[in-house]
């Protein structure tokens, strides 16, 4: 049945996205990168418009702009002229606004703005699924490779540097990976909500974890649960899929914060 088919695709795509969001999300929470995530997501709007203008693949355009924003932030914050959240505020809303203005100028192309802002998981194609799982797989592999370095710079950058970690390199890699994941996940929950999939499952996992790997794992599972429950709810009550996934993640977070946990 075609109905079941698109729902099946949505679940497969959503699970792939949730796994990688869950793992990278712990670093977003530890390193206070939530605003960075929002900035990259907002810049994705500019990426879409530039992609349309250049006539190139939109996913690729979004990825390139997201990466450019990540690198720009890294370079600007080294100069210490502005605090990082001021820089983020400028880049975030600046790129979103420029994107929206440019979009209104090139009105030859009809673009589903709602889908861009809030995602459209029910329209994912087989190609999207392949991209999500291959892109996610690469990000996962790189994360595993630099795992100790990532933990080390999260605890103390100078100490990591003295111990031989190439801090700048690892940090840039992390920002690029978060940008990649946002470019991927934006298709599913949209520009406005995408950071929530990085933050909420990781926050849910904190109370039940005694080690960093455990927290990443629980965070990934919480994300998968949110995708499945959100899509089921969306199917049941005919609510928009992207927001429903975020509501499911939020419900799990709220529920988990009232469950008593024995702290040994």
């Amino acid at each position: 049945m075609p109905m079941d088919d698109f729902l099946f695709r949505a679940v497969i795509a959503g699970i792939g996205m949730a796994l990688i969001c869950g793992v990278l999300g712990v670093f977003v929470v530890w390193r206070r990168m939530a605003y960075f995530g929002d900035t990259v997501a907002h810049a994705a709007m500019l990426g879409v418009v530039l992609g349309l203008l250049a006539g190139m693949d939109l996913n690729l355009a979004v990825l390139l702009v997201a990466a450019a924003v990540a690198i720009a932030l890294q370079l600007l914050s080294r100069r210490r002229a502005w605090s990082s959240d001021t820089l983020l505020g400028i880049l975030s809303h600046g790129s979103l606004a420029v994107g929206l203005v440019m979009l209104s100028i090139i009105d030859t192309v009809r673009l589903d703005l709602m889908a861009l802002l809030f995602g459209d998981i029910l329209s994912v194609t087989q190609t999207d699924i392949i991209r999500i799982w291959i892109g996610g797989g690469i990000v996962m592999a790189v994360t595993a490779l630099v795992w100790r370095g990532l933990l080390s710079i999260t605890v103390h950058e100078d100490l990591a540097r003295v111990e031989g970690v190439r801090v700048m390199w690892v940090e840039t890699l992390l920002m690029l990976m978060v940008a990649t994941v946002i470019a991927i996940a934006m298709k599913i929950v949209g520009i406005i909500l995408v950071t929530s999939l990085l933050v909420i499952p990781a926050a849910t996992a904190r109370r039940f974890s005694s080690g960093p790997e455990q927290m990443a794992l629980i965070s990934a599972l919480a994300g998968v649960f949110a995708v499945v429950a959100g899509l089921a709810g969306s199917w049941q009550w005919d609510t928009p899929a992207g927001p429903s996934i975020v509501v499911a993640a939020l419900s799990l977070f709220l529920l988990s914060s009232i469950v008593p946990v024995s702290q040994s």
Binding site: V29, W30, R31, R32, L151, T154, V155, H156, D158, L159, V162, E163, A203, R206, S209, S210, G211, P212, Q214, M215
Partner: peptide, 16 residues
């Protein structure tokens, strides 16, 4: 071997 002046593990990072 370096012992920095201040080091605080992020509060939401479970680390033994």
């Amino acid at each position: 071997g370096y012992m920095p002046q201040r080091l605080a593990v992020p509060p939401f990072m479970p680390l033994s």
